[in-house]
Each structure stands twice: as C-alpha cells, then as structure tokens.
Simulated scan of single mutants.
Amino acid sequence: MLDRGSAEPWLNGGMLERLHPDVRGVITEYGAQVNEVGVLPIRGFYLYGSIAMGGYTPGRSDVDFVAVLDRMLTQAECSRLAAIHGHVASCWPSPEMNGIYVMRDQLGKLPHEISPYPCYYGGQFLEADLFECNLVTWHQLKEQGIALRGSRQELDYAVDWDQLLARMKENVESYWRPWVYESAKPDTRKGMALSERSAVEWGVLGLTRLYYTFRENNITTKAGAGVYALERLPATSHPILIEALRWREGKPTLYRSASERRQDALLYLHEMLAACETAAEEAAGRR
C-alpha cells in the first residue's frame, strides 16, 4: 500500500483529514494511484451521498464519488482506471467505491440528454454507462458535495426541484410499488429475500427516504429517514424501523423469527406506499 502522503499533491489533504479513517484510507490510496499515473484528465473529484451528509456508517455505506474530466477518457485511460480501482479494492475491500467520470457539461443532465460515460460500481469498471445519472445525484453533489480536488464553484448547474419531486413520485410507482408487491409473494426471489435483514433495511429505509423528501423538501440519509420516521409515525411502525436501523449499526435483531420480521416489513411498506402518495400530492400542492 502506498504512503498516504503521496496522494496529497493530487487531493485536498485538509479535506481528507475530516473524513472517517476508512474513507480516508480508500480515497488516499486511490489518489496516490492516480497521482502516480500522472496523465489522467481529472480536474475535479467530489464525494456525495452519506459521507457528504454526515451519515457514513462503517460496513454499510459506500464511497460515492463524481470525477469531473477535462476531456473524454481514452480506452487506454479507462484501462488504467480499471486497474487502479481493482488495486484499491484489493487494499481496501470496505468501504466500496462507486462513482462516475463525466465532463463538466454533463453535470446536472439526465440520461436522454447525454451519452453514457465511464463509471465504477459493484466492483466493475464500465467504459459507457448511465450509473447514477439522476436528479438526486446532481442535487446531492451540488448542495452537499465535498471537493477533494477542484472547486465547488465548478458545480454551477441548476437542479429543478419540482422535476426532482415528480421523478421521485414516478420512482415510487414504477420501482417501489412493484418491488413491494413482488416482495409480498413468498415464492418469488424478492419474496424470499425479504426474509433477510439486509432486504428489510433496503426496503424500509429506502422508501422512507422518499417520504422524508416529499414531506421536508430535502434529502437525507437512510438512517436520517429512519430516525425521522420514528419521531413522526405511530408506535406500531417503530419495531421494523428500529430493526432496519439496528442492521445498519451492526446490532443483532430483536425479532423472534424472520417470518415475524417479514410480516412487519410488508405491513410497513404497504403503509409507506400510501403515505408517499399522499405526501407527494401535498408537496405538489405546496409548489
């Protein structure tokens, strides 16, 4: 593993020091490798997501990043980046890096407005994809992004909040509602997966994040959404919310059986679908 000091000519060392040690280790290794190559056209490197929102959870959160390019990457440069990410993952299996490499004029754009770009997620480097090309990504980056290279002043695009809310409402109907209904069938893959704590956390907190946004006109972390719901929803919803938060914290389950937990999760998810629908309509009325 390279010495962390070798990354500092390329990355903002002062900002690095503020990060969780695990995140700092991953980013420092990445920066050292990119700095060693020395010819990659990366003008800006930003963190967003849970790290930028102060909700990083060791063992659960990823390192979400956006790298801004001076020019499009060549195939050879993509190969170098793929090797760099592979090296970093071998040195730091957790947290996992997930991010995109885009031109400045691609920031803030939607899939129908731009061509696919290089990205790294799930342990794979892809030369052309549209991973995380959505208004939530661009809003988080612009409002809360951490600049480790470059300046936040370069994030001079605009995000239409009304359009973001409209797309979130579409997401509830096109993704979450089918996901919940499919998860209610015990003989399907999703139905069986909901017996696992990780799937419960994914569904319960993921849908609750949308509810938070509709209600508060803001974006928060999964954990933040869970705490928000605990403070505002009836006590009958609390056990499954607490369970989802405990999984994120690496704490053991409080449920006596997986079937009981699954039943509570399904009840909560169906109620949250209705709550999101109502909250989305109210949000549209306030605009």
Rank of each mutant, 00 (worst) to 15 (best):
E8A: 00
P9H: 09
E17D: 13
R18K: 07
N35K: 06
D64L: 00
F65S: 01
I84N: 12
V88T: 07
C91I: 12
W92C: 03
W92T: 04
P95D: 05
M97F: 01
Q106S: 10
Q106H: 08
K109H: 08
E113A: 11
E127T: 07
L130A: 13
N134M: 08
L135R: 11
T137H: 13
G145R: 04
A147V: 08
A147Q: 04
D156W: 05
A158H: 08
D160S: 05
D162F: 07
M168F: 08
E173M: 07
S174A: 11
W176C: 00
P178I: 02
A184Q: 06
P186I: 15
P186Y: 08
T188S: 13
A193L: 08
A199T: 11
E201V: 02
V204K: 02
L205C: 10
L205T: 12
T208A: 14
E216L: 05
N217C: 04
I219N: 00
K222S: 03
G224A: 03
A225H: 15
G226M: 05
V227K: 06
L233I: 03
A235E: 15
T236G: 01
L241F: 14
I242C: 05
L245R: 02
L245H: 02
W247T: 03
W247Y: 13
R248V: 00
E249R: 09
K251A: 15
S257V: 10
S257K: 00
A258I: 02
A265S: 14
L269M: 09
